[in-house]
Design a protein around this nucleic acid. Sequence first.
DNA 1: AATTTCAGCAACCGCGATGAA
DNA 2: TTTCATCGCGGTTGCTGAAAT
Length: 559
Amino acid sequence: MTRKTDESEDEMLSTDQAESPLINESNEGSYGEGVVMKKGPWTSAEDSILVDYVKKHGEGNWNAVQKHSGLFRCGKSCRLRWANHLRPNLKKGSFTAEEERLIIELHAKMGNKWAQMAAHLPGRTDNEIKNYWNTRIKRRQRAGLPLYPPEVCLQALQESQHDQNTGGVNGEDRGHHDLLQTNSFEIPDVMFDSLTTNQGILPYVPELPDISASNMLLKGVGSSPYCTLPPILTRQKRFRESTDLFPGSGGSFGNGFHSFEQFRDDTRHKVARSFRFSSPLDSDPTAKNSLSFGVIQGSHSLSNGNSSASEPTYGALKLELPSLQYPETDLGSWGTSLPRPLLESVDAFIQSPPPGGTFETDCSSPCNSGLLDALLHEAKTLRSAKNHSSDKSSNSSSATPGDVADSSTLNICETELEDCGDPISPYGHSATSIFSECTPISASGSSLDEKPPAETFTGVVKSEPVDPAWTLDMEIESTTRFNYTRPDALLSADWLQQGSGYIKDQSIMTDAIATLLGDDLASDYKYIASGTSNSSQGWGLNSCGWNNMPAVCQMSDLP
DNA sequence: AATTTCAGCAACCGCGATGAA
DNA sequence: TTTCATCGCGGTTGCTGAAAT
């Protein structure tokens, strides 16, 4: 599909331009010294003027083009037109497989450094590459495929580990870390809850890299190469639409299920609560992970589906990097470093309560939060809530209001869910049936990459054509090899399967969330959740499941 | 056949960096 | 040192044709 060429376009316009000095009245743009600058598509006449000018005067001094050539285009526009279309040695046509492969590799290294990437692709422009990449992101998300082929991830991981071992992080290698950062280990709130029941059997808490939960919350869908769901905006829209499934927007669903508003609020609390942790293990705001919570706007990762890998994200400047905030340290240590014993961590948490009242209701903890902290605190909160469920109100004096409120909310939510007994959704799908119906991931090591959700979702998502640069076999092989270097392997393979309580909690929560999501999203979510509980590929739940959670809990979108 | 949705591309806009006055 | 102009980059928007409904 190609856009109509400028040439053919020009043929229609050229007659008008016989009189008009290249100005299309409908496209008049900025005003400079009283001159109306044209905007919009370039005509061949304009092109020829620009080419002639550059031949005479060379590139540069683009603002002089208008003065000397009579071209009613701003310098910026001239430069862009020249760089992207008129300069010699430009390649036309779609990218070759080799070029695509190179782009993927370069993006893994550089992030959204389109100009730098273009330097490695002779004849290609940064704009071309950028457009290609954005299109690729969309395609991959639609198909539920990883943005980066696991080969690239594995390579980045290995190089990152090598960097860690050698102790150096040079400029370019930051990109690898950023790639790893984009492999955010996104864990839905379900996971936090489920940890409670697994705490007793959890031998270790792996030394998780710090994951900015707020970032996960804000980042939306697609930042993780392994999390490839439809764009969050679409999700949000669909979610808003899905609320229409419930007449009266706040009434009961029926079957005694609590109201949508109630559940929405519960979910809001739960998700928000999960990310309000100040970490005693990382209480220094100037520590490595200096990403602060509370910066709600500004992440542009939503749009391009992948965080910029240009530089580590510090402070609240950019929230584009999804999660892993310790690029210099732990990234390469997945599965290799000795995990921190859970109890030790818990003790550390309990002995060192979060400073300063801790749980900011606006998610703007002055300290940094990591997944480990979140998990620990979630476990603590849940344990505490259960131990004192009969005396919730009395706790308010000894805990922060947010904590208590959240715990109470949690208990309410849990109680209501557990009161349902058998986790049967108002739509009549038990969790068991969900798992049995949607079990796309076998226990034999298949992955989301192998069997993308596109094949499992109910015909909504089109299949993604095989990436010419990366074959399915490559992804299968590399994904399989990659399994045990991925953090989800630590989180899911062993202890998750031991914890029947986890399964129960998860299925309850899954079903509830599926209900909340509505029919179309429910299938997605159920699939994702089932994938985790049924296999060691916890990644599916971690990433996609989480990414459904923001869809549920995009607070700003809730009425 | 008409309409809607989607995908791809070109161009614009805002911002930061750089250098000259 | 400050101010201003220019350049370049990255993100975003809008247009168009194709595909789907």
